[in-house]
């Protein structure tokens, strides 16, 4: 188990290298000049521009810039932005908001998706199943931002149950509506996967065995079927957490939440490579860690892949 974990962590190194390289290159290739973007319509004196370009190594070849950046990163230095603020500080300041939003949404999604999926799976082919199917199709079909804006208007503005924007109310009040919007949209896929997986498992021979042992239907489902049905779902859940972080960026913008999303958008507009890559690196790391956790959890659920 330990050997496996270490091996998995070592495997992350090339992934992090590759991911940061691609993101860095993409930022570098973006059209427009970073300094010009910084100053807007009133150009700076040429000497100042030169000074900035020098200070941020903007005239160095791409690979040198990337190499410098990675050297800093290895020492835990994420660099500074154009206003001289350390990037790591900027990210850590905003990461908790995004993280809280994504995790809340993820947990809600888990609850909604599993509940609908298990319900549909157990009522395979009956009215309840069809209802669950219609529900998931509707929410799969509507774009997320439409649900977000609708929910914001109805619950935030018209009913006034929660603040329509901002995080003044703190967790959980300020996070519930945006998280719920994300969860409902994302739970549709989870519900369908859970349903299909459960229907498959309910047909398995070992469930016949369980019934032939004289077990109650409840024990057959909860004791024998569900854990098996969860095996494919767990893989999906880990991957979907990354999707949650991505989705959070959009939802943050709609609900005006000071998370990573806003920072990322500003940084891209300003062509601030260090910030963009810093955020991306952070997300890649979070993603990899969750994937590792999922794989380890997978082994606990399914003894056949235990190492």
């Amino acid at each position: 188990m330990l050997g496996y974990t270490v091996r998995r962590i070592l495997q992350m190194v090339p992934v992090v290298l590759g991911a940061t390289f691609i993101i860095y290159a993409l930022t570098f290739l973006m059209p427009g000049d970073p300094v010009a973007a910084l100053t807007g319509s009133r150009p700076l004196p040429e000497s100042t521009v030169q000074q900035i370009r020098l200070a941020y190594h903007l005239d160095d070849p791409f690979l040198v810039q990337y190499g410098n950046y990675m050297l800093g990163l290895l020492q835990g230095n994420f660099g500074i932005d154009f206003f001289g603020r350390p990037v790591l500080g900027l990210i850590l300041e905003r990461l908790p908001v995004t993280f809280a939003l994504a995790m809340t949404a993820w947990v809600l999604k888990l609850a909604i998706g599993l509940a609908i999926g298990v319900y549909g799976g157990l009522r395979n082919g009956q009215a309840g199943d069809h209802f669950a199917l219609v529900f998931t199709v509707i929410f799969l079909g509507i774009p997320g931002f439409v649900i977000a804006l609708g929910a914001q208007t109805v619950f935030g503005v018209q009913l006034g149950w929660v603040d329509p924007a901002g995080i003044r109310a703190g967790w959980p009040l300020a996070f519930i509506l945006p998280a719920l919007v994300m969860a409902i949209e994302a739970s549709a896929g989870l519900a369908r996967l859970t349903r299909t997986s459960l229907v498959d498992v309910l047909r398995a021979e070992y469930l016949r065995t369980a019934r032939a042992k004289g077990l109650s239907p409840r024990r057959v489902v909860w004791g024998h079927a569900l854990r098996n049905a969860m095996i494919p779902v767990v893989t999906y859940l880990g991957l979907s957490l990354a999707g949650m972080l991505g989705g959070a960026v959009i939802i943050e913008a709609i609900f005006n939440m000071p998370g990573i999303g806003g920072l990322m958008v500003t940084a891209i507009n300003n062509k601030e490579g260090t910030v963009v890559v810093g955020i991306a690196t952070m997300l890649v790391l979070v993603y990899l860690v969750f994937n590792l956790l999922v794989d380890l959890l997978y082994g606990i659920i399914d003894p056949r892949v235990r190492i």
Partner: peptide
């Protein structure tokens, strides 16, 4: 009681 044809599929893989 019953003994099934294929013991691999007749036993619950996760218990």
């Amino acid at each position: 009681t019953m003994v099934f044809q294929d013991a691999l599929t007749a036993l619950n893989p996760v218990h």
